[in-house]
Design a protein around this nucleic acid. Structure first.
Lengths: 167, 167
DNA sequence: GTCTCCTTATCTGACGATAGGTAGATAACG
DNA sequence: CGTTATCTACCTATCGTCAGATAAGGAGAC
């Protein structure tokens, strides 16, 4: 993976988490990275392939971070909570798949696939840790809603209050 | 309020709940309503005034519905849950202010004000019913996350599972 | 060594489509 | 006559996308 490719993915991820799928453009990404828009198209031919690549990398990274948390002693709920909380460290930004899924009507199919994969594997991870399906769904909903409210109001403490009872 | 104005607000609300602020356009609204885009501009001069009007009406209507639910015997949590659940009756669509807040970086200030008002008055409503601040925030987060997940996966039962433990 | 050939990564410059928004005319109505 | 509501026609900006040029560098052939 070239430097440029990684920088494009980073910039796109940040923009999507702040403004959703239709809230970012090739030209913005190009400015962020310091190349021209055509160069972004060279690496990612279309907007949906770029967004799908961003979501794919995001899904893998989140799952890895959760497993790392559990390997270091946290239970599954604490590990998921920590990963979501860390995402708020560098500014008020949504969960990527939450930001995409909230505007699902204008998502291309290839992006939707990755969004579904995120939620499916998230619930699987919690169920594998012993939670019931209802409880796993509730935990994931609290986390998504908490990061949404914290983002919308630019106040990370809202996340802490919403998830305090998860411990 | 003219028929046209109401129809514009209805169409805009539906589109925003499906695709967010940057996922709807004057031309789409005009087609939905059956007028020309310039006529929509006559009633709502700019996109942010239209979106702010939609959000304002939404906020008032949701609060009214919650109070009606409480007047007919539901406790505050049950009333809020019922209002969110009803919003999923006619298709997989987000909470309007959830859809707007999830992409808050490209929201004009006037729209952001209404989003903030929604969450503030929602938490107030729950706190006035006796919930602690933490608990009120948690309940609202579950509801927002539940409707987000149900929308993203086009499955209203996800909402039911996520909120089953609220009863 | 160096001369060709292909690939990689970037650029310039444009395409058609669509965005939000405006000006000015028209028709209906009190 | 003035107000209200709608229209047609247009503006400028930006969108995603593409074609074609350019420069750098490695791979083989001589």
């Amino acid at each position: 993976m070239t430097d440029t490719v990684g920088a494009i993915l980073d910039a796109a991820e940040r923009r999507i988490r702040e403004a959703g799928y239709s809230g970012f453009s090739y030209r913005e990404i190009a400015v962020d990275v310091g190349v021209k828009a055509a160069s972004v198209h060279y690496h990612f031919p279309s907007k949906d392939t770029l967004a799908a690549a961003v979501a794919h990398r995001y899904n893998d990274r989140v799952l890895e971070a959760v497993e790392a948390g559990m390997a270091s002693g946290l239970d599954a709920i604490q590990a998921w909570r920590a990963v979501f909380r860390d995402a708020l460290r560098d500014g008020p930004r949504m969960c990527l798949c939450g930001a995409l899924g909230a505007a699902s009507a204008d998502l291309p199919p290839g992006v939707m696939v990755e969004v579904h994969r995120f939620f499916r594997s998230g619930l699987d991870s919690l169920r594998k840790a012993g939670l019931s399906e209802d409880r796993a769904t509730q935990v994931m909903a609290v986390l998504e809603g908490a990061i949404l409210m914290a983002t919308a109001q630019s106040d990370p403490e809202i996340f802490d209050r919403a998830t305090a009872a998860l411990d």
